[in-house]
Amino acid sequence: MLAWPYLSGLFLLVALPAVAAAVLAFTEFSGVQAPRFTGTDNVRRLVADDAFWSSLGNTLIYILIAVPLRLAAALGFALLLHRRSKASTLARPIAYLPTVVPDVAYVLLWLWLLNPLYGPIAGAFGLTGLLTDPWGARVALPLMAAFQIGEAFVVSLAVRRSIPKSVYEAAAVDGARPLFTFTRLTLPLMAPALALLALRDVILSLQINFVPALLLTDGGPRYATTYLPLFVYRTAFRYFRLGYASTIALSMFVLTAAVVYVQYRMAKRWRVLD
């Protein structure tokens, strides 16, 4: 009985739109006229669409840079700050802080930081092409996201702290040096959690690039930061091709499922997930 409000919301706000989008993916629909069933026309158009492949490439580049960076940052901070000390207590919320800053504010801050004319990063390091050069922008956006380590940091911290101290003491008495301890003990013991975090971050990274791509670079320069979510948005709400936009969204779903499946198989193979 108590679950009814939640289940109703889930049905009306998630399940129904998802099914509607899946159906619309096989129609031509401008939002004004009634949808017209077109079979697999949209799919064929998608396969032949250079803009789609370019967006997909940009998205994959974003994931390839952002996910390892964010995971490494979360792990690094967790290892650095897991000990109980006043400095750690102070530093933990600071490490988490960029995650709670609203996306728009965060992007506007980076717009200033990366501004090629008066931004401090351009001034200090001479990096003026981070938003104006296609590859500069392709790297800058995932770099920017690397500071929002949020939940990955909290989970890594909790997992690291759950490893008994005596295991490390046994390793120290066994003669293990720090690098050996890290590679043979810490990393394998944290691997199941890190594998799950990586899975989650890939799914997240497919979506969270929408706000920075829209506000910071508007998908440019030269479409370098037109990621799939922005591509869907433009197709749907700038060109009002809602049917085709649903096809792209469906492809994102398939892509997400495929990536998750591949990672899951890898994790099973490496025995990091039971």
Binding site: V167, A170, A171, L185, L189, A191
Partner: peptide, 13 residues
């Protein structure tokens, strides 16, 4: 020296 811990401190993985 080698030590045997009260909780054995085995490497679980």
């Amino acid at each position: 020296v080698a030590m045997v811990f009260q909780d054995y401190a085995l490497y679980p993985h």
